[in-house]
Every structure is written in C-alpha cells, then in structure tokens.
Simulated scan of single mutants.
Amino acid sequence: MNVPYFAQWESRDLVADFLTGKLDSAEDPLWALSGAETPEEYAFWSPNVCGMACLKMHLAHTKDQVVPILELMKECRDYGGYKVDDEKEVSGLYYHPFVSYVKDKFGLSAEVKENISVNEMYDLLEEGHVFIASVHPSIRTPTTLPPKKGGHLVYVFAKDPLDKKIIFHNPSGHTTASQENVSLEMEVFNRYYAQRGILIRLESE
C-alpha cells in the first residue's frame, strides 16, 4: 500500500538533529511549508503535532489533499483539541475534540477507542480501516524498553498477515527506516502501545 509519508517536522531528514537538540526546530529550512507565521511558532508546535502529521498522511492517502500541518493544528485547536497553559506548555491531542473536528471538516468516520488490544486493532486493520495509535516515542528504536506506554501517535494503516506484523508511519522517526512503512511484530508493537487511539473507518467500507 502506497501511503504518503509526512514527518511532524517539515525536513524529515533533519528529525534526528531536532530530537537530539543538535538543531533547534526554528532552524528547519522548510519551516514555512508548515503554515506557521514565524520560525518561532513552528518551533513551538512541531514537537507537539504528531497527531496532525497522522491526519495529514490520512488526508493525502484517502483524499489526495495535502494540508499544511499547522493549519490542521489551528483548526483542531479551535475545537479544543489542543490547549496551552500559562507556562506555555501544550497539552493534547484530546481525542474527542479531534474526532468532532475531522467529522465536521473532512467528513471522516472516526471514533475514539479506549482499552483496545493490539489484537483488536489488528482485526480492524483486517477489515480495511486505519488507526492512529498511542505509543511511546521510543518505538523509533524498537530494541529499547520504553519507560511507559503512550505519549506519541503513529499512523497504522496495514498489517502483514504472514508474520502477524503491524505496519505504520511514525511522524517522529529519526531515520528513513523508522519513519515510513515500519513493520513490527505485534508483541514488539505492544511494548509501546497504550491500548488507545482513534479509529478511522475508510469510506469504502
């Protein structure tokens, strides 16, 4: 399945440097493509928009629409999908406002899923749907043990029935191999997976 890939930063080849702090996100040469008004606005939001990157991939995949990632964020924020506190810390993505947003704006058939096992998610993929799954960001290096589950979102769109693998795009992958068409055994994926996320039923189903 040929699913377009987008990182949550515009320069996917620089993600490793942004993650390590070698580069500040404001130094991304492609920052303006995000829809941000300034490099500072881009740097503030880019570490927080993994969910919008997943949505961007879904829209490109199913509707041939490529929407700037911060345009999506601002619309979703207006629905209550993101909040910024007095300390200028971002909280979100809040799933229920996100679902309302994508239903109203794009006509997507989406629903929040809680306490959904990796096997149940696999069955939904079998039916032809996709899933924005909550995982720990260290899933980019799947030989490591995560300190907890959740905290990051990946776009799960396929499975390998022969080897029982989950196939997904990771908006914060630090190498090409950890970014797109990542294929992990279900038990490995489950180490990082928080048993929740957003199901998007494909329109053809």
Rank of each mutant, 00 (worst) to 15 (best):
W45V: 03
L23I: 08
V118H: 14
H152L: 04
A60D: 03
E127R: 11
I139A: 04
G107I: 02
N170E: 03
P137S: 12
K63H: 14
F131Q: 05
A53P: 04
H58I: 09
R191N: 14
G92Y: 10
I167P: 00
P137L: 10
D86G: 14
D78V: 01
V156N: 02
T144G: 08
S34I: 03
T143F: 13
D123N: 13
E185H: 14
K88I: 09
S117I: 06
P47I: 10
R140V: 13
N190M: 02
C76F: 12
V67H: 03
P97Q: 06
T20H: 11
V67K: 02
T20F: 04
H129K: 09
I166M: 10
K83P: 06
I132P: 05
E41T: 00
H152N: 06
G151K: 09
W9T: 12
E120A: 13
I132F: 15
F106P: 02
N2M: 11
E89L: 15
P161I: 05
L199F: 05
N170R: 00
P97C: 12
E120M: 10
V67G: 03
Y42G: 02
L108V: 06
E27W: 10
P4C: 07
D13V: 13
L162A: 15
L108T: 01
E40P: 01
H169P: 08
F189D: 01
L70C: 01
T20C: 08
V3C: 04
S46W: 08
S172F: 14
I132A: 13
Q8C: 00
E40S: 14
P161K: 03
K149D: 05
E127L: 12
M1A: 11
V66D: 11
F131P: 04
R77A: 15
G197K: 01
L93K: 10
E10G: 03
Q195P: 02
G150D: 10
K148S: 13
I167T: 04
S134A: 14
P29S: 05
D86Y: 06
W9Y: 15
Y192Q: 06
V99S: 07
K22H: 12
K113F: 13
D123W: 05
M52Q: 09
A194N: 15
H169D: 09
D78Q: 09
A16K: 15
I166S: 08
L162W: 11
L14P: 01
R140M: 10
E180T: 14
G173T: 11
Q8K: 07
E180N: 08
F131H: 08
G197F: 06
I139E: 00
G150R: 04
W31K: 00
S134R: 07
